[in-house]
Amino acid sequence: MRPETTASPAAPLLRAERLSITFGGIKAVTDFDLTVGDGEIVSLIGPNGAGKTTCFNMLTGFYRPTGGTAQFRGQVITGLKPHAIARRGLVRSFQKTSVMKNLTVFENVVTGHYLQTRQSLMQTFLFEGASKRAAEAARQRSAEIVQLLGLGTRSETPAHHLSCGDLRLLEVGVALAARPTLLMLDEPAAGLNTAEANAFGEVLRTIVATQVRSLLLVEHNMGLVMGVSDRIVVMNFGRKLIEGTPAEILGSDEVREAYLGKGAAGKGAAGKGAGR
């Protein structure tokens, strides 16, 4: 099912070139370039309304860019539907907490294994064998993921009874279940208190070490971002401001101005609302 063209070591996993989108004449994102290499952890930061979530939505097919292209593992993905992009291994979470709230934690993660347990109509109605084995494997892996996230005791809890912190973990669990090549998390620590955010950071590090090689992160929690990222891209007003290592970014005047100067007041709504 998946394209088996392994990218050459030099080519990045994800390459976006001059991505642009306008909403009703307003430029939300302009000429945005981004690369994520294999095994790399990249964070996308910037003030509210800078266009980070809009970029996520363009990369994952929820918005269609008005200009530019994105390639994943050497293949153009702009113009594909969201599910088609997910099937290529680019899996995302959402800024607004999004899980299947009437299902239990375990059921949520099992459902996340959709791509591993797909079956033909013949299998659905007549011969169960092969799909039963796939389903069993999915259940086992789901149990592992639930343990890994520290949700073991709440495995049978319906998602709408979870605390905010557990919900954010569950979201990551559902995304992990889809076995991403590149995992994109949109503000996964939003709404968490400091202790929860620290715990989340720990889980994120474990995940990166054991479950998924490459990560693209949008996050406001600077401790988390600085702690995990190989490279950071800063956006403001729909454009890339600067990119570099965490140390370079911390020392940058432009970043300080974007966050503390007039840019901090720019609360445009362009980047919001995609989750709904």
């Binding site: 929820f62 299947m100 099992v110 959709y114």
Partner: peptide, 19 residues
């Protein structure tokens, strides 16, 4: 299961590869 996922949350369903 995919249908339930869509019913529960269309966006999440798409992001795990459900058409």
């Amino acid at each position: 299961r995919a249908a339930v996922a869509v019913r529960e949350n269309r966006f999440v369903a798409q992001s795990i590869g459900v058409d």
